[in-house]
Design a protein around this nucleic acid. Structure first.
Lengths: 116, 116
DNA sequence: GCCGCTCCCCTTGTATTTCGAGGGTAGCGA
DNA sequence: TCGCTACCCTCGAAATACAAGGGGAGCGGC
């Protein structure tokens, strides 16, 4: 049915963002913990390098989806805690939905017949 | 459990490749038709621009996954027909599997609990 | 015969993002 | 004091999707 047409990277490249937002939906966390969460939540199927994650966090912050503040970690280290903003929560819903529709479309294509 | 750890783009960026390979699994087709197939097979959820698809085809050819040959289209135009090679068929299996595992991991994360 | 549409190919520049490698500080236990 | 782990960051290289642009050739209508 007439859903809007998506371009690829809008959803694809946003997958990291989606995972980060989702990880913060449980409450504030620092970058290092976010990385661990993703790895754990995907049962080690996905690993995010620090060189990938750390640039992503200010990006999300710039867009107003997360907010940062320094604090002490569980291990008594300085750590930058990120928390979801109101608009970040909305964005999480948007991206979750996009992902679901995108994944459904790919799965559909994988079992689609030849072109008519 | 102990699946291999994936990096993001290996799977993500390969999604277009996966769709193209899948579209050719039904037999040779020219680029224009591949684009139409993808749009149709995903129920209009995904649209691939020509500026995206046409550079992708030589890329896949370079990797030995598809082979090109000129011919006449259904509408009696010159068209470049691509067909899956043997190694392309293998690649299709690999990428299908990767996609399934990747998608499963993301879905798992979307319903994962807070970090321990 | 000509117009315009659709089919079909392609290139270029730009923007975005991921990755790997590298570098740095600071607790903490031995 | 050593070394490990937790924690932050930057940089350059590589990929690739996109929008915009350009072109040729059938074909049907006039």
């Amino acid at each position: 049915m007439g859903a809007r047409v998506n371009t690829l990277p809008e959803v694809l490249r946003g997958t990291l963002d989606l995972l980060v937002l989702q990880s913060l939906s449980w409450g504030p966390a620092h970058g290092y913990a976010v990385a661990r969460w993703i790895q754990q939540a995907t049962d080690d199927a996905l690993a995010i390098g620090e060189g990938t994650l750390y640039p992503a966090l200010p990006r999300l912050e710039e867009r107003g989806w997360i907010a940062a503040s320094w604090g002490a970690s569980e291990n008594n280290r300085q750590a930058k805690f990120y928390s979801l903003t109101r608009s970040g929560r909305a964005q999480l819903r948007v991206e979750t939905d996009q992902w679901r529709r995108y994944a459904a479309a790919v799965f559909a294509a994988l079992s689609a017949p030849a072109l008519k």
